[in-house]
């Protein structure tokens, strides 16, 4: 239960970090909060020769409100984002999802960038980023590039990041007024990775849905966003019939895989239940926020 011996690098600036990744990226790994990587190292499932700990690069740990939304530095801890008023009021889906990640001590260390770069399809944040069309900013000594969420997650634990690239920040678009969000999941125990999770965000004007975003985790090897379901919801009042149809449509489209923890049928069934639950909560929150009684701000 001890990692293999490696060289640990602790750069203090972004440039130093990128130089180290250019040199060692192929047989090295970025170390962020370590809450996924260190268990893998302890089990020797990962055997990197170099670890580039970016925990001292202060510029990566900044969360800021911008004209177009909320920009979260890759090293912002899950616990800090959870307590951020900017996230609560401008990115309610992120705020709803964060408390579902693991347990408080893990969120005290785990980062947003780490969770996204890890690319676990059962995790909450990849679903949130996909639902919101977040933009990922990656840097290397070759330059910077922006990667849309729809192109970021490739397959189980594989993302669009190259070995010499560092995820530096994630841009979440701000929500319009009249927006509500919810995250619903089931797991064997609280804090475990969910068997299935559903991220839902709806924007409502005059009682009608003008924008709907839905993404499921745990049912495929990447977060899966059923666009046909989103289309079904637009223009409706998200009443019981519409929500039931949406849940049925999701059950028909997802193709989960069964394992030790739950059968494929169970996951498919529960995907519909969770979709309905998340949609209702998101819609109700949206209506309250449309009425000007915004209860989202913690």
């Amino acid at each position: 239960m001890k990692p293999i011996d490696f060289d640990l690098h602790r750069p203090e600036t972004l440039d130093e970090a990128l130089d180290l990744l250019a040199e060692h990226g192929d047989d090295g790994k970025v170390l962020a909060g370590g809450q996924s990587l260190l268990p893998l190292l302890n089990f020797r499932l990962a055997r990197p020769a170099h670890l580039v700990d970016v925990g001292r690069v202060a510029s990566l740990a900044v969360l800021r409100r911008t004209a177009t939304g909320v920009t979260v530095g890759a090293m912002v801890r899950q616990a800090s984002a959870e307590q951020s008023p900017a996230v609560a009021s401008h990115c309610p889906l992120l705020a709803a999802a964060l408390p579902n990640i693991a347990h408080p001590p893990i969120r005290n260390r785990g980062t947003l960038g780490g969770s996204l770069a890890h690319g676990d399809p059962a995790a909450e944040l990849p679903s949130v980023a996909t639902a919101l069309d977040a933009v990922f900013v990656a840097a290397s000594i070759r330059g910077r590039r922006e990667i849309p969420a729809a192109e970021f997650f490739r397959t189980h634990l594989v993302t669009a990041l190259e070995p010499d690239e560092l995820l530096t920040e994630i841009r979440f678009p701000a929500t319009d007024s009249g927006t509500g969000a919810a995250f619903a999941e089931v797991g064997r125990r609280r804090g475990d990775f969910a068997l299935v999770g559903v991220a839902a965000q709806v924007t409502v004007a005059d009682g009608r849905v003008t924008d709907a975003r839905v993404c499921l985790s745990g049912v495929a090897d990447t977060p899966s966003r059923p666009k046909d379901v989103e289309d079904m919801l637009r223009g409706t009042a998200a009443d019981d019939d519409v929500v039931r149809d949406a849940a049925n449509a999701v059950r028909e489209t997802v193709e989960p895989v069964g394992d030790l923890h739950a059968t494929a049928d169970y996951r498919r069934h529960v995907a519909g239940v969770l979709l309905a639950r998340a949609l209702r909560e998101a819609y109700e929150t949206a209506e309250r926020s449309e009425d000007g009684h915004d209860l989202r701000i913690a």
Partner: peptide, 13 residues
């Protein structure tokens, strides 16, 4: 002041 898991935190961190 905040609880963390010391088995998945490097001493150097």
């Amino acid at each position: 002041g905040s609880p963390v898991r010391s088995c998945i935190l490097l001493a150097a961190q």
